[in-house]
Amino acid sequence: MTYDFEAMLQTIKDKQWSLADIDWDAPGAETMTDELRAKMRPFMADLVWIEHVGARGFASLATKAPTPVVKEIYEYFHAEEQKHANAELALMKRWGMLDEDGQMPEPNINVKMAIKVLDTYGDNLPLTGLAALIPLLECALDGALVKFLLDEVSDPVCHEVFRHINSDEARHITVDFQVLELIGAGPLHKTLIESASLLHPQVVLGLIVVFVPLINKMRDNIVAMGLSEQKLYNAVKRYSSIGGRGEFTRRLPAYHVLRTQASMVINRSHPYHRFLADPLVKVTSFVPARLLGRPQAWVDEVTHEPIAS
């Protein structure tokens, strides 16, 4: 049976929420101790940037959507990821994690490189590649990072915000995998041609040099903060099991490549780390940010203000 994307679009429209629905001054901010604030600040900054860059990924997906309804769903998801970044920035403000001017924390060099790659190649990447990558990142975000945050922080406003975010993310993951099914159900030769077009040397190199160290750096930072590796393992297992449940997703080479890479990322003793990821983290730390030029204007769109006059 084919999936009803129209019904999902209607649900997405019905479930919209706004930062203005949240009482950002409600009691609970005092539960953020100085020690916890210092520990969580870099985590929250990474989280805001993951959502913000993820939003840009959906913007690219929208240009590639197989049908007008899926395109509209992706446009909502683009906005919702931005909303998550806005809400998480508002939490950072509530907890006194922002500077006096309330600016977004500066991204690290690996995030800056990811932004550059998305600006340069994002809209030209084949649908299968991006469509397989995004649910993996969302499984990791939803299954590991957010669970970690909610275990660490008891502020009720944070829990209220993440009830909304988790409900959005559940719909994102459902649609992501249904789109993989839709692509996988297409003619095999089309899938293979699209997958082969991912193999342009500049695309493969760009993805390796940018995303391998980006993900490894975040992985190590977050594990050092106390995230259990079991949570990461569960997140990747979820990606494999949902994808494996589908009838057609397993026909997509991009899904298998990413599943394999993800299982190497979570296993710290795998040679992937010693021979590829760790050296790349080191090398990219020497890349001067000014080489990358100014990012496109979407990076300045994040705001913690619920109301814009």
């Binding site: 706004s18 203005a20 906005a79 909303k83 806005n86 705001t303 203000e305 109301i307 814009a308």
Partner: peptide, 12 residues
């Protein structure tokens, strides 16, 4: 007082 858009902001 305004328009709400899906990035979570109310535009007055």
């Amino acid at each position: 007082q305004g328009v709400r858009t899906a990035e979570g902001i109310e535009h007055r």
